[in-house]
Design a protein around this nucleic acid. Sequence first.
DNA 1: TTCATAACTTTACGCGCGTAAAGAATTAAA
DNA 2: TTTAATTCTTTACGCGCGTAAAGTTATGAA
Lengths: 343, 343
Amino acid sequence: MTGTKIRNMEEFASVSGISRPTLSKFFNDPSSVRTSTRQRIEAALEQYDYQPNLYAVNQNRRLTKNIGVVVPYLADPFFAKIARTIEEHIIETGYRPVLLGSHGSPAMEIANLDNLRSIKPAGVLLAPLGRASDHAKIEAFCGEVPTVLFDANIDGIGEAFVGSNNAQSIGLIVDYLCRTGEPPCFFEMKSPSNPNAFKRRSAYIAAMERLGHSPALIQAEGQGWEFEEIGFREGTRVVRDRNLPTNTLLCSNDRLAIGLLSAAFEAGLRVGIGEGCDLRVAGHDDHPFSRYTCPTLTTVSQDYEAIAKTSAAILLDRIESEETNDSRQERLFDGRLIMRASA
Amino acid sequence: MTGTKIRNMEEFASVSGISRPTLSKFFNDPSSVRTSTRQRIEAALEQYDYQPNLYAVNQNRRLTKNIGVVVPYLADPFFAKIARTIEEHIIETGYRPVLLGSHGSPAMEIANLDNLRSIKPAGVLLAPLGRASDHAKIEAFCGEVPTVLFDANIDGIGEAFVGSNNAQSIGLIVDYLCRTGEPPCFFEMKSPSNPNAFKRRSAYIAAMERLGHSPALIQAEGQGWEFEEIGFREGTRVVRDRNLPTNTLLCSNDRLAIGLLSAAFEAGLRVGIGEGCDLRVAGHDDHPFSRYTCPTLTTVSQDYEAIAKTSAAILLDRIESEETNDSRQERLFDGRLIMRASA
DNA sequence: TTCATAACTTTACGCGCGTAAAGAATTAAA
DNA sequence: TTTAATTCTTTACGCGCGTAAAGTTATGAA
């Protein structure tokens, strides 16, 4: 890149001594040209500053190298982290990730998909909002664009689903809590927007019954994605009323637990496993902030890496094999117990 | 949208009875055609499902309607929030935001700018990493694409800078802390990557001297963007050594404070303003999680909304007036004291 | 050396749209 | 009603690249 700017592929062809069709092949897939030719082109690229015009390229390709990544809420570090991991895997394979957040709004989720449609993505990785999502429109989108769902499942929609094995992970922490103290009651939202929440509730009930305990649910009012706020509000109420059936609370997710811990702290309750503690609190997800709560939060970590890697791999496989799938696979990954100070 | 799919503008012209050049004008700027014509087109758009091919459109335009938004770290809720606010303002004005995070890596920051270059953005809003950034390459980029910096300034680079008035906001909280208890010492990173950190340090020193106190700095070792971890580590050390010059700590940002609070909690120190408290801790930024720390964190909130709105407005103004600016303006917004329980 | 094959060059067309130019139709003002 | 200004239609070209077809050159095995 000695600075000489090249305006188009024609011009680059003349300065590099390679014909334009060959250059076109090269830019689409460097390995599709002879090694000696590739080296000549790469040498020329060192000298001249040229890259194909993205818009001209994509206009003539039926499907682009873009891959949409849509998550419910980008300001949630959990989704920011998993989205980032997915992005890395996509880039490695030579595709271009396009990251979009829906900010908890079903309308924006659909708007994001519409926006993606206009950039003709090769495929989309979608973590849907869940119950609030416009299922019909998402299904229509999946009919047009190869889409793999992750994190939250919608039955039958998309090429595949990749997520956490809530039955296993909740079972894991229920076992742990029962083994080390009083059986937990389950702290969740009354009308959660995420399908995982329902799975976790069922998994909690099943685990409790398996161990011969009777399940108990504490359900917080509130809508939307301000989970900490909801956890704090309901936590304050629970602590004030002091009519808990047990001293152990298992939260449906870490963000609720963060709010709950804050409420317990304000009320002067000691949370933890030691002597003199009033309450045990556990979460689920291993949220990035759960290491810094007071006390640090015992939780179950999802296998981010595996979920990100697998969902990207399945999508790319579907894209490159071009086969319309008949078998919609569901891949679930086990959680891992993260023991900290809160339970 | 009765479902009849239209393949291109030509086809839409024939079914709508409007000539293609007029349609082209309409899609570029609906107000550029007569009202009656616009209504006929809009009526046709209701019936037929058509939208111009994004790639064909942008190929022929010198500059697109894309606006890049680059932040240092998308997994930081602070940046996620301000980026979101900026996105909203951009969408309102009919442009398309393209959100990119640099994940703390200067190389990725440059890669993001290179990626943006290839989509020919009309302009870019950039919150640079700061000291670690490749200033030369950023400057070169700003020479090609109208760029407004926000959050972190790099002297002389870009069309403008929009950020917080650190002198004011730090002064504000130093005043408050001195008024209500012991003068604070300043808790920060020894080699911070963000230019705001230096401004805040200077502002702290200036405020202390103005009030006749001698400033004291506590500088945490550590690199990168894991501020909570760094705050926790250094916090643990500080608490263990117990050689603080004062019982009040002002943290350079909330994420350091979150780590510090966690360390204080683990060490059994009582943080807060009441009787029997060992320590007061304050932060800066009003991080989304600072409402849920234990105790809740007293801090200074940045004026997200104004920073987002103003930086977007200045950029759009520059884009639409097409004038190469000679006067690089810097706009700073005052912070607001958020009094909570920690100080 | 011979020859089949792979890889290349040359030529040419098309993608969907921006946009310029010239003439026709509409609108608003006189 | 006449006239001038807008706004439209028609026609045509170009953007930068994908890609097909036919001919040419390079490659490597026999």
